[in-house]
Amino acid sequence: MDATRQPKLEAKSVKLAFYNERMKRRLQVLDGIDLKVFEGELVAIVGPSGCGKSTFLNAVDGLSKINGGEIRVDGKLVTAPGPDRAMVFQQDSLFPWYTVTRNVTYGLELQNRLSKDEILDRADALIDLVGLEGFAEHYPHELSGGMRQRVNIARALAPDPQLLLLDEPFAALDAQTREFMQVELMKILSRARKTALFITHQIDEAIFLADRVAVFSARPARVREIVTVDLPAQRTLDVKLQPRFRELFSHVWRLIQEESRTGLALNNGGAA
C-alpha cells in the first residue's frame, strides 16, 4: 500500500457517544477510531458483537454525528450523507412499494442530475451487472433473499459513489447463498472498480473478500489490529481451503475472542 497517496477514506480518532435513555447514562461507543481506505481497496471490519461496527459505518455515511475526530472522504469532511458514499443495507431495506428498477434508480432520482432516459439506461446496465436481467419490473417480495441483496447492491452503485459501504449485507442469507453472493460481490466490485468498506460478523467472509481486515476492540471501540490479507487478489472459494487462509482466520478469530472476553469483563464491572 502506497502510504503517500491520499486515502479515499480517512478516519482520524473518531469518537462517538450516545446518551442511553433507558440506562440514563452516556454510552461511549467509538473511542478514537483510526482507519484509512485507499482507492480500489476493499476493507472489512470485524469485531465482537455490539462493539460499534455499524455505528462507525453510519458515521462514515453521515447518518450518525460524531463527537470527536474527523472523517474525510477524498479529503472532504463528512458531515451528512452525500453522493460520494452509498450504503448497502441489510436485507429488507428495499422499498417494497417500488419495482426493482425504481429501487435501483432511487438515489439518482433524488439527485435530479440525469435525465429520465439516462437514469433508466443506467438502471438497466446495473440490473444486468448484478445478474437480474428480466426482473426489472418485479417487486421485492417476489424475489429471493439473494436477489434482493443484488438489487440492494445495484441501488447503492447507481449514483456512482466513490466509496461503497456495506452493512452486513449477507447476514440474513443462508450459508450457501451467502458464499455464492460473496463471489458475486467480488466480481461486481472489480467490474465496477469500487472502493468499499464493509462490516461482517463472518471472519471467513472478511478474509475472503477483503484486502485488509480491521479488527475492532470491544466497546468503546478502537482499531485493535489491521490484518493485511496476503492472498492472491483474484480469489475463488477454493482459497478458503488454503493453509494461509486458515492461519489468517485463526489469527483474527483469536483477536475477536480476546476482545469479547475483555468486553464481557468491562460490561460486568470486572466481575467476569
Binding site: 453522493p83 452509498a86 450504503m87 422499498f95 433524488l110 439527485q111
Partner: peptide
C-alpha cells in the same frame, strides 16, 4: 424507521422523504 434511514442515506430532503417513503407506506 429503516426506510427513513435508507432515504436519508441517499440524501433525501424532507419533501423527498415524504413523497417516496411516508406517502407510499
Amino acid at each position: 424507521r429503516d426506510y427513513v434511514r435508507v432515504a436519508r442515506s441517499f440524501g433525501a430532503s424532507d419533501r423527498q422523504l415524504f413523497a417516496t417513503v411516508a406517502l407510499p407506506s
